[in-house]
Computed example of a mutant assay.
Amino acid sequence: MQTDIEIYVLSCPTEKIINWLESTFTLVKKSAPSSLCSKVTVIMNDHDVEVTILEQAAGKRFTSIWFNSDQTPWENDIACAKQAFNALNCEVRCNFQGWEEEGEQDPDQWWRINSYEEGPFIWN
């Protein structure tokens, strides 16, 4: 089980992301600490999960969606990315293997899902 889940969505409005979270989970709390950052708390598997939505997290067009919990319904980032792509209909990127403290993975190796393809690629 991963300690957290993080995906990046391309050109997807924050309100659309929050609507996806509301339609998929029970929304408990919502706040906007800054103009580029929204925080929501949702209930997943009977646990409160903090979700941070940060616009312009990777360049100006990518928004990060970070689930700060090991209690998500997804096995890994890619499983979350697939659900997000189906719900949001915008390109989704995530770390290829999940982040590991001592991993041997290439930090530029990512997974991309869009309407043309799905698979690994180098994001640098």
Results as ranks from 00 to 15, higher is better:
119 G>E: 14
10 L>M: 13
112 R>L: 15
115 S>E: 15
33 P>D: 01
18 I>V: 14
73 P>C: 03
37 C>A: 12
19 N>Q: 12
120 P>A: 15
25 F>D: 01
51 V>G: 11
66 W>K: 07
89 N>Y: 04
9 V>A: 08
115 S>H: 15
53 I>L: 04
72 T>K: 03
46 D>I: 03
30 K>I: 12
6 E>R: 13
27 L>N: 10
74 W>L: 03
36 L>Y: 09
49 V>T: 06
121 F>A: 08
105 Q>F: 04
80 C>K: 07
72 T>N: 01
16 K>G: 02
76 N>K: 02
82 K>P: 03
65 I>T: 08
81 A>F: 06
21 L>D: 04
51 V>W: 05
28 V>M: 04
95 N>R: 10
80 C>G: 08
107 P>Y: 05
102 E>S: 12
76 N>D: 13
79 A>C: 06
75 E>P: 05
88 L>C: 05
53 I>N: 08
111 W>A: 04
74 W>Y: 14
24 T>C: 01
78 I>T: 09
114 N>M: 02
52 T>R: 11
19 N>I: 11
41 T>Q: 11
56 Q>V: 07
68 N>P: 01
25 F>M: 00
86 N>I: 07
116 Y>E: 15
3 T>G: 05
7 I>E: 01
114 N>E: 07
111 W>S: 08
90 C>P: 03
57 A>T: 02
11 S>E: 15
108 D>W: 12
2 Q>F: 06
55 E>W: 00
67 F>S: 12
62 F>A: 11
67 F>W: 08
106 D>F: 10
75 E>T: 14
110 W>T: 11
53 I>C: 02
